[in-house]
Amino acid sequence: MPVTDVTTDPEALTLTLTAEFAAPVERLWDAFTEPAQLERFWGPPGWPARFPTFDLSVGGRAVYYMTSPRGEKSYGSWEFLEIDRPRSFTVLDNFANEDGAPLEGMPTMRVVFTFEPTETGSRMVNVTHFASADALQQVVDFGAVEGSTMAINQLDRVLAGLREYAQGKGTQTEILDDTHVRITRLIEGPIDLVWRAHQEPELLQKWMLGPDGWRMSVCEVDPSVGGRYRYEWEPVDGAPGEPFGFDGATLLSEPPRRAVTTEHMTGTDYPSTLNDLTLEEEDGATLITVLIEYPDSQTRDMVLATGMTDGMEASYARLEGVLAGV
Score class of each variant (00 low, 15 high):
70 R>G: 05
102 P>C: 00
30 D>F: 00
27 R>L: 09
46 G>R: 00
55 D>P: 04
120 T>I: 10
19 A>H: 00
71 G>V: 04
116 E>L: 09
68 S>P: 02
84 D>N: 14
123 R>M: 13
76 G>L: 06
114 T>I: 02
106 M>A: 03
25 V>Q: 15
107 P>T: 09
25 V>H: 10
47 W>K: 04
15 L>G: 12
58 V>Q: 10
63 V>W: 03
70 R>S: 07
72 E>F: 11
30 D>E: 13
80 F>Y: 14
101 A>V: 07
108 T>G: 12
112 V>W: 10
36 A>I: 01
38 L>A: 13
96 A>C: 08
81 L>E: 05
81 L>C: 01
74 S>A: 09
54 F>N: 01
54 F>A: 05
74 S>R: 14
102 P>L: 09
99 D>S: 10
114 T>K: 13
17 L>F: 10
96 A>Y: 10
49 A>E: 06
117 P>H: 12
16 T>Y: 00
114 T>F: 00
103 L>F: 08
43 G>A: 09
93 D>T: 10
21 F>A: 00
97 N>Q: 04
67 T>Y: 03
106 M>S: 07
26 E>D: 05
104 E>Y: 03
36 A>F: 07
29 W>C: 02
107 P>Y: 04
40 R>L: 14
36 A>Q: 03
85 R>A: 14
90 T>S: 01
65 Y>H: 12
66 M>H: 00
87 R>F: 06
107 P>M: 06
112 V>G: 05
118 T>K: 08
122 S>W: 02
83 I>L: 10
63 V>S: 00
42 W>A: 14
89 F>S: 01
123 R>N: 09
121 G>A: 13
46 G>W: 07
94 N>G: 06
72 E>S: 13
91 V>G: 01
109 M>F: 12
124 M>H: 09
18 T>M: 05
86 P>C: 04
95 F>I: 01
75 Y>L: 01
52 P>V: 04
80 F>M: 08
92 L>R: 15
101 A>K: 11
24 P>C: 12
27 R>N: 12
15 L>C: 15
30 D>Y: 02
89 F>W: 05
37 Q>A: 09
52 P>F: 01
41 F>K: 12
29 W>E: 10
89 F>H: 11
69 P>T: 06
63 V>I: 07
78 W>N: 12
99 D>H: 05
110 R>D: 02
35 P>C: 10
98 E>A: 11
113 F>W: 12
37 Q>Y: 05
55 D>G: 02
77 S>L: 07
30 D>V: 04
75 Y>Q: 04
64 Y>F: 09
44 P>L: 04
61 R>K: 11
95 F>M: 05
28 L>M: 13
33 T>I: 14
16 T>N: 00
34 E>R: 14
25 V>R: 15
119 E>R: 11
106 M>D: 03
109 M>K: 07
27 R>I: 11
34 E>D: 12
64 Y>E: 05
95 F>D: 03
72 E>V: 13
39 E>Q: 15
58 V>P: 06
122 S>I: 11
94 N>M: 07
